[in-house]
Simulated assay, not measured.
Amino acid sequence: MDPETARTARESLDLAFHMSNILDTGLDRHTLSVLIALCDLGLNPEALAAVVKELQREPPPSTPLSSSSSQGSNN
């Protein structure tokens, strides 16, 4: 990637990240970069937004040890 293209890409990401912060999306710069790359590859942005909202709504996954031990006690 030539320096001018890299600079433009960096400025675009900076602008998108600034807008993301204004909208209080909770997305970090890396996650936003991945989402933009997925859109560039042709993924539907509305579908990606729905996935992000769903993932933000879900509680963090429990550890495999605690879920396997609780499943074992039900048998």
Rank of each mutant, 00 (worst) to 15 (best):
M1R: 09
M1W: 12
P3W: 06
E4K: 05
T5K: 14
A6Q: 15
A6T: 11
R7P: 04
R7I: 05
T8F: 10
A9T: 01
A9K: 03
A9C: 01
R10K: 08
R10H: 10
E11V: 04
S12E: 13
S12L: 14
L13F: 12
L13R: 13
L15F: 06
L15S: 07
L15G: 08
A16I: 09
F17V: 00
H18W: 07
N21W: 06
I22V: 10
L23I: 10
L23Q: 12
D24Q: 04
D24L: 04
T25D: 00
T25V: 01
L27N: 00
L27T: 00
L27E: 00
R29T: 01
H30G: 03
T31N: 03
L32E: 02
L32S: 01
S33C: 08
S33D: 06
S33I: 02
V34L: 07
V34P: 06
V34G: 05
L35A: 02
I36F: 04
A37C: 07
L38E: 15
C39V: 09
C39P: 05
C39M: 10
D40E: 15
D40T: 12
L41S: 11
L43P: 03
N44M: 08
N44V: 10
N44E: 11
P45Q: 13
E46I: 14
E46D: 12
A47H: 06
A47I: 05
A47P: 01
L48W: 02
L48Y: 02
A49G: 05
A50T: 09
V52L: 02
V52N: 02
K53Q: 07
E54L: 08
E54F: 03
L55C: 08
R57K: 01
E58R: 13
E58I: 12
P59R: 01
P59N: 00
P59S: 01
P60C: 07
P61V: 14
S62L: 09
S62C: 07
T63Y: 05
T63C: 06
T63S: 04
T63Q: 06
P64W: 15
L65N: 13
S67N: 06
S67P: 06
S69Y: 06
S70G: 04
G72W: 07
S73W: 09
S73I: 12
S73H: 05
N74L: 15
N75E: 15
N75Q: 14
N75S: 13
N75G: 09
